[in-house]
């Protein structure tokens, strides 16, 4: 048994420690918001936070995450109210939506470390997240908008 802390809750999973976190989240914990896209850390669709840092769950074995704090898209906010999610709605970022969990998790991690990111910061933090629908222009604008929302008094 492996014990994981996902979105603040303890999960006891009967799984091979070599299993990538992605499949444990999706198939064992039933948290399907984190997506499979490539299996090789090439597309970012599986991005989650590990102790607040963005990681690609498809190449992160369970053995590496036991005892650490895992946050998935389901845990970013309970109601879609994280500033990144609000900005995403406001600017109509999503299209098919499949990559957006990963995009949002990468963007949230970026803003946590750089509250006012430059275009270069955005390129560096987001270049690992592919979007086949091509929502990049709006992602860039929404990250800047989220930065404003984080600054504004709640």
């Amino acid at each position: 048994m492996i014990t994981l802390e996902i979105n603040g809750a303890r999960h006891e999973l009967d799984a091979d420690p070599a299993m990538p976190l992605l499949w444990a989240l999706r198939d064992l914990a039933g948290l399907t918001g984190t997506k499979y896209g490539c299996g090789k850390a090439l597309c970012g669709a599986c991005t989650v936070h590990l102790d607040g840092e963005p990681v690609r769950a498809c190449v992160t074995p369970l053995a590496a995450v036991e005892g650490r704090r895992i946050t998935t898209i389901e845990g970013l906010s309970t109601d879609g109210s994280h500033p990144v999610q609000r900005a995403w709605t406001e600017l109509d970022v999503v299209q098919c939506g499949y990559c957006q969990s990963g995009q949002i998790m990468s963007a949230a991690a970026l803003l946590a470390s750089a509250p006012k990111p430059s275009d270069a910061d955005i390129d560096a933090a987001m270049a690992g997240n592919l979007c086949r629908c091509g929502t990049y222009q709006r992602i860039r604008a929404a990250i800047k908008r989220a930065s404003e929302l984080m600054e504004a008094p709640q």
Binding site: Q85, T89, V94, G97
Partner: peptide, 8 residues
């Protein structure tokens, strides 16, 4: 469909 797609 944004509310569903931004929350997974």
């Amino acid at each position: 469909d944004s509310p569903q797609k931004i929350t997974g």
